[in-house]
Amino acid sequence: MKYYIGLDIGGTTIKCGLVDETGKIIEKDSVKTSIKGEEILQNIETIVSQFKSEKPITAIGVSAPGIVQKDGFMTTGGAIKDFFGINLKEEIEKRTDIKTTVENDANAAAFAEQWKGNAIGFHNYYCMVVGTGIGGGLIINDQIYRGGHGMAGELGMMSVMNVDNDQHLELNSLSFTGATVFGLLNYYNHHSDKPEVTDARVIYELADKKDKLALESLDFFYTALAKGIINLMVALDPEIVLIGGGISANSQFMEGLQAKIADLKSRNSDVRDLTFAEVKPAKLRNDAGIIGAVYRAIQAN
């Protein structure tokens, strides 16, 4: 039996797991993500050292935010600014002496669903991760599609909602309107005179009580997400769209999103009668980054 280390570097935590060659997570843990790149690398070194003391490690798979090139070079690093312009694969290999594969977090989630999740049997699909921002992994003919510059599938950059002309245009992007933090929570807090809400579940609870602002915030959020997904549908016609991220476990979220997609589709005569892909939750949720990163490591070895 071969063993691998899966690392899922997120904006809040680094999730880590000891995974066998069948995709079973034997042990997992998490540590807080530092804002400093050097501290993150030191934490990774400690994590790897711990797992190495338990099992012989064949390779390390890393899921990381930002635009990641095939060779592990980080064109961008999401919220981790110290990762911009570094080769993360080389940095980790230098510190651990273990062969490492680095993949964009949304691509890793897409790979995980292909291996062990709800994309089994599909050859052309999109995996959208809804969290602090929006990420996405695009699979075409069973292969990840990276595009000419490594940023294919990054629907978070897509413009979907109107903003004032004197604002930064990124504020009309899917990440700043249809994400859980930058979209839903930001919209609610920006229009509220109450204490800041930091948990999307609070907005759903308020909406259940017919709170006007909560309902308005959810409608804005769903509209942005639905527009982005419909744009994807007409551009690439995937077989299925899987939604990952913590909020995908919320049945109210999925029902609201599906209803908004159906509503917008019904009001557009160009697409009203077209058959669209099913939109459903990803299966692996919080384990997707670890499992997908390991799957890539297995493929590379």
Rank of each mutant, 00 (worst) to 15 (best):
D219E: 15
A288W: 02
G72W: 01
D142F: 03
G37S: 14
A108K: 01
K55Y: 13
L138E: 09
L218Q: 10
D270K: 11
A152Q: 10
G156N: 03
G256E: 10
V294A: 08
G136L: 01
A249H: 13
G23W: 01
Y3F: 13
I98A: 01
T22Q: 10
K260I: 09
G10W: 00
K89D: 06
G78Q: 00
E45F: 06
K94W: 04
L18I: 07
S266I: 08
N43E: 15
A214K: 01
K36Y: 14
L215E: 15
G6V: 08
E113K: 05
G77R: 02
P238A: 06
L232P: 04
I26H: 07
T76I: 05
D71N: 14
A106Y: 01
E39P: 01
I298R: 07
K116F: 02
I120K: 14
I9L: 13
A152D: 10
I35K: 11
K227Y: 10
D270P: 02
I5E: 02
E90T: 12
S217D: 01
M254P: 07
G77I: 02
D193G: 01
I25M: 04
T180L: 01
V197Q: 10
I144E: 06
L264Q: 06
G148N: 15
S269V: 14
R146Y: 12
V19H: 02
E196D: 09
N189Y: 05
I14V: 06
D211A: 10
